[in-house]
Design a protein around this nucleic acid. Sequence first.
DNA 1: TAGATTGTTAATCGATTAACAATC
DNA 2: TAGATTGTTAATCGATTAACAATC
Lengths: 217, 217
Amino acid sequence: MNDKKISIAVIKRLPRYYRYLGDLLENDLVRISSKELSEKMGVTASQIRQDLNNFGGFGQQGYGYNVEHLHHEIGKILGLEHQYNIIIIGSGNLGQALANYTDFERRGFHVKGLFDINPRLVGMTVRGIEILDIDKIEDFVKLMKIDIAVLTIPKQNAITIANDLVKWGVKGIWNFAPVDLKVSIKDAVVENVHLADSLMTLSYNLITKEKEDALQL
Amino acid sequence: MNDKKISIAVIKRLPRYYRYLGDLLENDLVRISSKELSEKMGVTASQIRQDLNNFGGFGQQGYGYNVEHLHHEIGKILGLEHQYNIIIIGSGNLGQALANYTDFERRGFHVKGLFDINPRLVGMTVRGIEILDIDKIEDFVKLMKIDIAVLTIPKQNAITIANDLVKWGVKGIWNFAPVDLKVSIKDAVVENVHLADSLMTLSYNLITKEKEDALQL
DNA sequence: TAGATTGTTAATCGATTAACAATC
DNA sequence: TAGATTGTTAATCGATTAACAATC
Protein backbone atom coordinates (compact mmCIF):
# COMPACT_ATOMS: atom_id res chain seq x y z
CA MET A 1 0.00 0.00 0.00
CA ASN A 2 1.22 3.51 -0.66
CA ASP A 3 -1.27 5.19 1.66
CA LYS A 4 0.56 6.71 4.55
CA LYS A 5 -1.05 6.51 7.94
CA ILE A 6 -3.75 9.10 8.51
CA SER A 7 -3.38 10.76 11.89
CA ILE A 8 -6.12 10.57 14.47
CA ALA A 9 -6.35 14.36 14.48
CA VAL A 10 -7.36 14.31 10.83
CA ILE A 11 -9.86 11.50 11.28
CA LYS A 12 -11.52 13.30 14.17
CA ARG A 13 -12.00 16.35 11.99
CA LEU A 14 -13.75 14.48 9.17
CA PRO A 15 -17.17 14.25 10.85
CA ARG A 16 -17.02 17.97 11.45
CA TYR A 17 -16.38 18.67 7.77
CA TYR A 18 -19.19 16.29 6.96
CA ARG A 19 -21.56 18.14 9.25
CA TYR A 20 -20.71 21.58 7.86
CA LEU A 21 -21.03 20.37 4.29
CA GLY A 22 -24.38 18.80 5.15
CA ASP A 23 -25.56 22.16 6.49
CA LEU A 24 -24.36 23.93 3.36
CA LEU A 25 -26.13 21.35 1.25
CA GLU A 26 -29.37 22.01 3.11
CA ASN A 27 -28.96 25.63 2.17
CA ASP A 28 -28.55 24.63 -1.49
CA LEU A 29 -24.99 25.86 -1.75
CA VAL A 30 -23.32 24.37 -4.81
CA ARG A 31 -19.67 25.24 -4.44
CA ILE A 32 -17.33 26.40 -1.71
CA SER A 33 -13.65 27.26 -1.54
CA SER A 34 -11.37 26.10 1.24
CA LYS A 35 -11.09 29.76 2.22
CA GLU A 36 -14.84 30.24 2.67
CA LEU A 37 -15.21 26.97 4.52
CA SER A 38 -12.26 27.80 6.76
CA GLU A 39 -13.94 31.03 7.80
CA LYS A 40 -17.18 29.29 8.67
CA MET A 41 -15.42 26.60 10.64
CA GLY A 42 -12.76 28.68 12.31
CA VAL A 43 -9.81 26.73 10.95
CA THR A 44 -7.19 27.52 8.29
CA ALA A 45 -7.84 26.92 4.63
CA SER A 46 -4.48 25.21 4.52
CA GLN A 47 -5.59 22.66 7.06
CA ILE A 48 -8.73 21.85 5.12
CA ARG A 49 -6.81 21.30 1.90
CA GLN A 50 -4.17 19.23 3.67
CA ASP A 51 -6.78 17.12 5.41
CA LEU A 52 -8.75 16.42 2.26
CA ASN A 53 -5.68 15.65 0.21
CA ASN A 54 -4.93 12.76 2.49
CA PHE A 55 -7.78 11.03 0.72
CA GLY A 56 -7.58 12.44 -2.78
CA GLY A 57 -8.07 15.59 -4.81
CA PHE A 58 -11.73 16.49 -4.46
CA GLY A 59 -11.46 20.07 -5.63
CA GLN A 60 -10.78 21.93 -8.80
CA GLN A 61 -8.31 24.77 -9.26
CA GLY A 62 -9.96 28.12 -9.69
CA TYR A 63 -13.32 26.73 -8.61
CA GLY A 64 -13.11 25.16 -5.19
CA TYR A 65 -15.13 22.18 -4.08
CA ASN A 66 -18.54 20.98 -5.17
CA VAL A 67 -20.45 20.80 -1.90
CA GLU A 68 -22.59 17.81 -2.71
CA HIS A 69 -19.71 15.83 -4.15
CA LEU A 70 -17.37 16.57 -1.26
CA HIS A 71 -20.09 15.76 1.27
CA HIS A 72 -20.70 12.47 -0.42
CA GLU A 73 -17.01 11.62 -0.66
CA ILE A 74 -16.37 12.33 3.01
CA GLY A 75 -19.39 10.21 3.84
CA LYS A 76 -17.81 7.40 1.86
CA ILE A 77 -14.49 7.84 3.68
CA LEU A 78 -16.34 7.66 6.99
CA GLY A 79 -18.01 4.44 5.93
CA LEU A 80 -21.51 5.85 5.85
CA GLU A 81 -22.36 3.83 2.76
CA HIS A 82 -22.02 0.69 4.83
CA GLN A 83 -24.96 -0.78 6.67
CA TYR A 84 -24.22 -1.78 10.24
CA ASN A 85 -26.24 -4.00 12.54
CA ILE A 86 -26.01 -2.71 16.06
CA ILE A 87 -27.25 -3.67 19.49
CA ILE A 88 -27.51 -1.57 22.60
CA ILE A 89 -26.54 -3.20 25.86
CA GLY A 90 -28.06 -1.36 28.75
CA SER A 91 -31.56 -0.08 28.09
CA GLY A 92 -31.77 2.66 30.68
CA ASN A 93 -32.31 6.27 29.75
CA LEU A 94 -29.09 6.59 27.81
CA GLY A 95 -29.58 3.35 25.90
CA GLN A 96 -33.13 4.36 25.05
CA ALA A 97 -32.00 7.82 24.03
CA LEU A 98 -29.57 6.30 21.55
CA ALA A 99 -32.17 3.80 20.34
CA ASN A 100 -34.54 6.65 19.64
CA TYR A 101 -31.98 8.69 17.77
CA THR A 102 -33.27 8.15 14.25
CA ASP A 103 -30.37 10.04 12.75
CA PHE A 104 -28.17 7.01 13.33
CA GLU A 105 -30.63 4.83 11.44
CA ARG A 106 -30.48 7.27 8.55
CA ARG A 107 -26.68 6.93 8.41
CA GLY A 108 -26.83 3.15 8.16
CA PHE A 109 -26.62 2.16 11.81
CA HIS A 110 -29.57 -0.16 12.34
CA VAL A 111 -30.58 -0.96 15.89
CA LYS A 112 -31.42 -4.65 15.81
CA GLY A 113 -31.68 -5.32 19.51
CA LEU A 114 -31.81 -3.86 23.00
CA PHE A 115 -30.66 -5.70 26.08
CA ASP A 116 -30.86 -5.28 29.80
CA ILE A 117 -30.30 -7.20 32.97
CA ASN A 118 -33.20 -5.52 34.76
CA PRO A 119 -36.42 -7.62 34.64
CA ARG A 120 -38.51 -4.48 34.88
CA LEU A 121 -37.14 -3.28 31.54
CA VAL A 122 -37.12 -6.63 29.76
CA GLY A 123 -40.21 -6.96 27.58
CA MET A 124 -40.71 -3.24 27.10
CA THR A 125 -40.33 -1.90 23.59
CA VAL A 126 -38.48 1.14 22.32
CA ARG A 127 -39.24 2.29 18.81
CA GLY A 128 -40.84 -1.07 18.20
CA ILE A 129 -37.80 -2.98 19.41
CA GLU A 130 -38.26 -5.29 22.36
CA ILE A 131 -35.79 -5.16 25.22
CA LEU A 132 -34.39 -8.66 25.66
CA ASP A 133 -32.85 -10.31 28.66
CA ILE A 134 -29.08 -10.22 28.59
CA ASP A 135 -28.92 -14.02 28.64
CA LYS A 136 -30.23 -14.08 25.08
CA ILE A 137 -27.34 -12.02 23.80
CA GLU A 138 -24.90 -14.66 22.58
CA ASP A 139 -27.34 -16.34 20.23
CA PHE A 140 -28.68 -12.99 19.09
CA VAL A 141 -25.28 -11.56 18.21
CA LYS A 142 -24.30 -14.62 16.23
CA LEU A 143 -27.63 -15.06 14.48
CA MET A 144 -28.16 -11.42 13.58
CA LYS A 145 -24.54 -10.80 12.56
CA ILE A 146 -24.15 -7.81 14.83
CA ASP A 147 -21.33 -5.47 13.81
CA ILE A 148 -21.38 -2.88 16.55
CA ALA A 149 -22.34 -3.09 20.22
CA VAL A 150 -23.16 0.03 22.20
CA LEU A 151 -22.35 -0.30 25.88
CA THR A 152 -24.45 1.83 28.21
CA ILE A 153 -23.86 -0.25 31.32
CA PRO A 154 -21.69 0.09 34.43
CA LYS A 155 -17.98 -0.31 33.97
CA GLN A 156 -17.55 -3.73 35.54
CA ASN A 157 -20.19 -5.22 33.27
CA ALA A 158 -18.73 -3.41 30.30
CA ILE A 159 -15.32 -4.95 30.80
CA THR A 160 -16.76 -8.43 31.17
CA ILE A 161 -19.07 -8.37 28.21
CA ALA A 162 -16.77 -6.59 25.77
CA ASN A 163 -14.50 -9.59 25.48
CA ASP A 164 -17.41 -11.93 24.96
CA LEU A 165 -18.88 -9.74 22.28
CA VAL A 166 -15.67 -9.73 20.29
CA LYS A 167 -15.48 -13.50 20.65
CA TRP A 168 -18.99 -13.72 19.20
CA GLY A 169 -18.08 -11.65 16.15
CA VAL A 170 -18.73 -8.04 17.07
CA LYS A 171 -16.30 -5.78 15.22
CA GLY A 172 -16.83 -2.45 16.93
CA ILE A 173 -17.68 -1.26 20.40
CA TRP A 174 -19.11 2.14 21.20
CA ASN A 175 -18.43 2.40 24.89
CA PHE A 176 -20.14 4.82 27.26
CA ALA A 177 -18.84 3.24 30.46
CA PRO A 178 -16.15 5.20 32.30
CA VAL A 179 -13.37 2.79 31.44
CA ASP A 180 -10.89 2.56 28.57
CA LEU A 181 -11.81 -0.68 26.90
CA LYS A 182 -8.92 -2.05 24.98
CA VAL A 183 -10.36 -5.43 24.37
CA SER A 184 -7.73 -8.07 24.89
CA ILE A 185 -8.37 -9.61 21.52
CA LYS A 186 -7.05 -7.04 19.08
CA ASP A 187 -9.86 -7.92 16.73
CA ALA A 188 -12.21 -5.04 17.48
CA VAL A 189 -12.35 -1.28 17.26
CA VAL A 190 -13.32 0.65 20.37
CA GLU A 191 -14.63 4.19 20.53
CA ASN A 192 -15.09 5.62 23.99
CA VAL A 193 -17.51 8.36 24.96
CA HIS A 194 -16.54 9.61 28.37
CA LEU A 195 -19.23 12.06 29.36
CA ALA A 196 -17.73 12.68 32.78
CA ASP A 197 -14.43 13.62 31.15
CA SER A 198 -16.21 16.09 28.94
CA LEU A 199 -17.96 17.71 31.87
CA MET A 200 -14.67 17.98 33.76
CA THR A 201 -13.09 19.70 30.79
CA LEU A 202 -15.94 22.19 30.85
CA SER A 203 -15.36 22.68 34.56
CA TYR A 204 -11.65 23.27 34.02
CA ASN A 205 -12.33 25.83 31.32
CA LEU A 206 -14.88 27.56 33.51
CA ILE A 207 -12.56 28.13 36.43
CA THR A 208 -9.65 29.00 34.17
CA LYS A 209 -11.74 31.62 32.42
CA GLU A 210 -12.91 32.94 35.76
CA LYS A 211 -9.32 33.37 36.91
CA GLU A 212 -8.34 35.07 33.67
CA ASP A 213 -11.29 37.43 33.84
CA ALA A 214 -10.44 38.31 37.44
CA LEU A 215 -6.90 39.22 36.42
CA GLN A 216 -8.04 41.41 33.55
CA LEU A 217 -9.88 43.76 35.86
CA MET B 1 1.10 35.86 35.42
CA ASN B 2 3.97 33.53 34.73
CA ASP B 3 1.79 30.53 33.91
CA LYS B 4 2.21 29.69 30.30
CA LYS B 5 -0.84 28.58 28.39
CA ILE B 6 -1.77 24.95 28.97
CA SER B 7 -2.51 23.18 25.71
CA ILE B 8 -5.89 21.63 25.06
CA ALA B 9 -4.23 18.26 24.61
CA VAL B 10 -2.98 18.37 28.19
CA ILE B 11 -6.32 19.50 29.58
CA LYS B 12 -8.16 16.72 27.79
CA ARG B 13 -5.84 14.18 29.40
CA LEU B 14 -6.43 15.39 32.96
CA PRO B 15 -9.82 13.69 33.44
CA ARG B 16 -8.25 10.46 32.28
CA TYR B 17 -5.49 10.71 34.89
CA TYR B 18 -8.14 11.54 37.43
CA ARG B 19 -10.11 8.45 36.53
CA TYR B 20 -7.13 6.10 36.69
CA LEU B 21 -6.01 7.54 40.01
CA GLY B 22 -9.54 7.14 41.32
CA ASP B 23 -9.47 3.48 40.34
CA LEU B 24 -6.10 3.00 42.02
CA LEU B 25 -7.44 4.70 45.11
CA GLU B 26 -10.37 2.29 45.21
CA ASN B 27 -7.81 -0.50 45.20
CA ASP B 28 -6.05 1.10 48.17
CA LEU B 29 -2.86 1.80 46.30
CA VAL B 30 -0.78 4.36 48.18
CA ARG B 31 1.97 5.33 45.79
CA ILE B 32 2.68 5.03 42.08
CA SER B 33 5.54 6.05 39.82
CA SER B 34 5.07 7.72 36.48
CA LYS B 35 6.49 4.55 34.95
CA GLU B 36 3.89 2.26 36.52
CA LEU B 37 1.06 4.62 35.69
CA SER B 38 2.29 5.00 32.14
CA GLU B 39 2.13 1.24 31.65
CA LYS B 40 -1.41 1.04 32.95
CA MET B 41 -2.55 3.92 30.77
CA GLY B 42 -0.61 3.15 27.63
CA VAL B 43 1.23 6.45 27.49
CA THR B 44 4.84 7.44 28.16
CA ALA B 45 6.09 8.20 31.65
CA SER B 46 7.65 11.31 30.22
CA GLN B 47 4.30 12.60 29.10
CA ILE B 48 2.77 12.06 32.50
CA ARG B 49 5.56 13.96 34.23
CA GLN B 50 5.44 16.75 31.67
CA ASP B 51 1.67 17.04 31.94
CA LEU B 52 1.67 17.17 35.72
CA ASN B 53 4.53 19.63 35.90
CA ASN B 54 2.43 22.14 34.04
CA PHE B 55 0.58 22.51 37.30
CA GLY B 56 3.28 21.94 39.88
CA GLY B 57 5.52 19.28 41.32
CA PHE B 58 3.25 16.70 42.85
CA GLY B 59 5.80 13.93 43.13
CA GLN B 60 8.86 13.13 45.14
CA GLN B 61 12.19 11.94 43.75
CA GLY B 62 12.90 8.33 44.48
CA TYR B 63 9.32 7.72 45.60
CA GLY B 64 6.86 8.66 42.89
CA TYR B 65 3.43 10.09 43.51
CA ASN B 66 1.08 9.65 46.43
CA VAL B 67 -2.08 8.38 44.76
CA GLU B 68 -4.57 10.06 47.05
CA HIS B 69 -2.74 13.37 47.01
CA LEU B 70 -2.33 13.42 43.25
CA HIS B 71 -5.96 12.42 42.72
CA HIS B 72 -7.06 15.23 44.94
CA GLU B 73 -4.78 17.78 43.30
CA ILE B 74 -5.97 16.92 39.80
CA GLY B 75 -9.53 17.17 41.06
CA LYS B 76 -8.74 20.66 42.27
CA ILE B 77 -7.20 21.60 38.93
CA LEU B 78 -10.33 20.35 37.21
CA GLY B 79 -12.47 22.49 39.46
CA LEU B 80 -14.19 19.60 41.19
CA GLU B 81 -14.09 21.41 44.51
CA HIS B 82 -16.48 23.96 43.11
CA GLN B 83 -20.22 23.54 43.38
CA TYR B 84 -22.10 24.21 40.18
CA ASN B 85 -25.80 24.82 39.70
CA ILE B 86 -26.90 23.27 36.47
CA ILE B 87 -30.07 22.96 34.44
CA ILE B 88 -30.91 20.57 31.67
CA ILE B 89 -32.78 21.94 28.71
CA GLY B 90 -34.52 19.19 26.84
CA SER B 91 -35.95 16.48 29.08
CA GLY B 92 -36.19 13.63 26.62
CA ASN B 93 -34.31 10.39 27.14
CA LEU B 94 -30.89 11.97 26.96
CA GLY B 95 -31.74 14.81 29.30
CA GLN B 96 -33.27 12.37 31.76
CA ALA B 97 -30.27 10.07 31.48
CA LEU B 98 -27.98 12.93 32.46
CA ALA B 99 -30.34 14.04 35.24
CA ASN B 100 -30.22 10.53 36.66
CA TYR B 101 -26.47 10.30 36.51
CA THR B 102 -25.73 10.68 40.20
CA ASP B 103 -21.99 10.67 39.59
CA PHE B 104 -22.25 14.24 38.40
CA GLU B 105 -23.98 15.23 41.61
CA ARG B 106 -21.15 13.65 43.55
CA ARG B 107 -18.63 15.81 41.69
CA GLY B 108 -20.40 19.03 42.55
CA PHE B 109 -22.70 19.43 39.57
CA HIS B 110 -26.15 19.93 41.06
CA VAL B 111 -29.14 19.59 38.78
CA LYS B 112 -31.47 22.38 39.87
CA GLY B 113 -33.96 22.27 37.05
CA LEU B 114 -35.21 20.41 34.01
CA PHE B 115 -36.96 22.08 31.12
CA ASP B 116 -38.89 21.06 28.07
CA ILE B 117 -41.15 22.49 25.45
CA ASN B 118 -43.30 19.37 25.27
CA PRO B 119 -46.47 19.65 27.43
CA ARG B 120 -46.52 15.90 27.88
CA LEU B 121 -43.22 16.03 29.72
CA VAL B 122 -43.86 19.21 31.69
CA GLY B 123 -44.99 18.34 35.20
CA MET B 124 -43.28 14.97 35.31
CA THR B 125 -40.48 14.52 37.81
CA VAL B 126 -37.05 12.99 37.39
CA ARG B 127 -35.13 12.16 40.53
CA GLY B 128 -37.54 14.41 42.41
CA ILE B 129 -37.00 17.33 40.07
CA GLU B 130 -40.03 18.64 38.23
CA ILE B 131 -39.78 19.27 34.51
CA LEU B 132 -40.74 22.89 33.93
CA ASP B 133 -42.08 24.61 30.87
CA ILE B 134 -39.39 26.36 28.88
CA ASP B 135 -41.15 29.71 29.33
CA LYS B 136 -40.16 29.67 32.99
CA ILE B 137 -36.48 29.47 32.18
CA GLU B 138 -35.41 33.11 32.26
CA ASP B 139 -36.63 33.75 35.78
CA PHE B 140 -35.34 30.40 36.94
CA VAL B 141 -31.82 30.93 35.63
CA LYS B 142 -31.56 34.34 37.20
CA LEU B 143 -33.13 33.39 40.52
CA MET B 144 -31.24 30.13 41.00
CA LYS B 145 -27.92 31.49 39.79
CA ILE B 146 -27.41 28.75 37.26
CA ASP B 147 -23.79 28.25 36.24
CA ILE B 148 -24.05 25.56 33.59
CA ALA B 149 -26.78 24.72 31.10
CA VAL B 150 -26.92 21.34 29.43
CA LEU B 151 -28.50 21.44 25.99
CA THR B 152 -30.18 18.24 24.86
CA ILE B 153 -32.44 19.84 22.29
CA PRO B 154 -32.47 20.14 18.48
CA LYS B 155 -29.83 22.32 16.93
CA GLN B 156 -32.02 25.24 15.92
CA ASN B 157 -33.36 25.62 19.45
CA ALA B 158 -29.86 25.20 20.85
CA ILE B 159 -28.50 28.09 18.84
CA THR B 160 -31.39 30.35 19.85
CA ILE B 161 -31.37 29.62 23.53
CA ALA B 162 -27.61 29.56 24.03
CA ASN B 163 -27.32 33.29 23.50
CA ASP B 164 -30.18 33.99 25.86
CA LEU B 165 -28.70 31.81 28.55
CA VAL B 166 -25.41 33.67 28.46
CA LYS B 167 -27.28 36.95 28.63
CA TRP B 168 -29.03 35.66 31.76
CA GLY B 169 -25.76 34.79 33.46
CA VAL B 170 -24.98 31.22 32.51
CA LYS B 171 -21.22 30.71 32.40
CA GLY B 172 -20.90 27.33 30.76
CA ILE B 173 -22.78 25.36 28.15
CA TRP B 174 -22.56 21.62 27.75
CA ASN B 175 -23.95 21.15 24.29
CA PHE B 176 -25.24 17.87 22.88
CA ALA B 177 -26.84 19.37 19.76
CA PRO B 178 -25.02 18.71 16.49
CA VAL B 179 -23.80 22.25 16.07
CA ASP B 180 -20.65 24.08 17.15
CA LEU B 181 -21.92 26.68 19.54
CA LYS B 182 -19.53 29.53 19.79
CA VAL B 183 -21.82 31.86 21.57
CA SER B 184 -21.55 35.32 20.11
CA ILE B 185 -20.93 36.88 23.49
CA LYS B 186 -17.45 35.67 24.41
CA ASP B 187 -18.57 35.44 28.01
CA ALA B 188 -19.23 31.72 28.21
CA VAL B 189 -17.41 28.44 27.90
CA VAL B 190 -18.83 25.82 25.55
CA GLU B 191 -18.11 22.11 25.58
CA ASN B 192 -19.61 20.13 22.74
CA VAL B 193 -20.48 16.44 22.83
CA HIS B 194 -21.05 15.31 19.29
CA LEU B 195 -22.26 11.74 19.53
CA ALA B 196 -22.78 11.41 15.80
CA ASP B 197 -19.16 12.43 15.23
CA SER B 198 -18.02 9.79 17.64
CA LEU B 199 -20.02 7.09 15.91
CA MET B 200 -18.63 8.15 12.52
CA THR B 201 -15.11 7.90 13.89
CA LEU B 202 -15.92 4.37 14.99
CA SER B 203 -17.28 3.64 11.53
CA TYR B 204 -14.12 5.00 9.88
CA ASN B 205 -11.92 2.89 12.09
CA LEU B 206 -14.03 -0.17 11.39
CA ILE B 207 -13.72 0.02 7.63
CA THR B 208 -10.07 1.01 7.82
CA LYS B 209 -9.32 -2.00 9.98
CA GLU B 210 -11.30 -4.21 7.64
CA LYS B 211 -9.23 -3.03 4.69
CA GLU B 212 -5.98 -3.53 6.57
CA ASP B 213 -6.99 -7.01 7.65
CA ALA B 214 -7.91 -7.90 4.09
CA LEU B 215 -4.46 -6.86 2.87
CA GLN B 216 -2.65 -8.84 5.54
CA LEU B 217 -4.02 -12.12 4.25
C1' DT C 1 -6.65 35.05 -21.45
C1' DA C 2 -6.78 36.63 -16.49
C1' DG C 3 -8.27 35.39 -12.03
C1' DA C 4 -9.06 32.16 -8.71
C1' DT C 5 -8.05 28.39 -6.08
C1' DT C 6 -6.32 23.97 -5.69
C1' DG C 7 -2.66 20.41 -4.58
C1' DT C 8 1.70 20.08 -2.68
C1' DT C 9 6.23 21.32 -1.05
C1' DA C 10 8.75 23.85 2.35
C1' DA C 11 8.92 26.39 6.76
C1' DT C 12 7.29 26.89 11.24
C1' DC C 13 5.44 25.74 15.28
C1' DG C 14 4.16 22.89 19.09
C1' DA C 15 3.86 18.57 21.34
C1' DT C 16 6.04 14.32 22.59
C1' DT C 17 9.92 11.71 23.89
C1' DA C 18 14.55 11.09 25.62
C1' DA C 19 18.05 12.09 28.73
C1' DC C 20 19.99 13.30 32.95
C1' DA C 21 21.17 16.16 36.94
C1' DA C 22 18.87 16.96 41.24
C1' DT C 23 17.28 14.93 45.26
C1' DC C 24 14.41 12.11 48.14
C1' DT D 1 24.97 5.68 51.34
C1' DA D 2 22.93 3.53 47.07
C1' DG D 3 18.87 3.20 44.38
C1' DA D 4 14.95 5.12 42.55
C1' DT D 5 12.43 8.46 40.42
C1' DT D 6 11.26 13.05 39.85
C1' DG D 7 11.49 17.72 37.51
C1' DT D 8 13.30 19.83 33.68
C1' DT D 9 16.18 20.74 29.70
C1' DA D 10 17.32 19.23 25.12
C1' DA D 11 16.29 16.46 20.97
C1' DT D 12 13.00 14.58 18.04
C1' DC D 13 8.98 14.04 15.88
C1' DG D 14 4.67 15.29 13.86
C1' DA D 15 1.16 18.53 12.81
C1' DT D 16 -0.06 23.04 11.26
C1' DT D 17 0.66 26.96 8.49
C1' DA D 18 2.64 29.45 4.66
C1' DA D 19 3.89 29.80 0.05
C1' DC D 20 3.53 29.05 -4.67
C1' DA D 21 3.59 26.52 -9.04
C1' DA D 22 0.09 24.05 -11.51
C1' DT D 23 -4.16 24.41 -13.69
C1' DC D 24 -9.06 24.97 -14.17
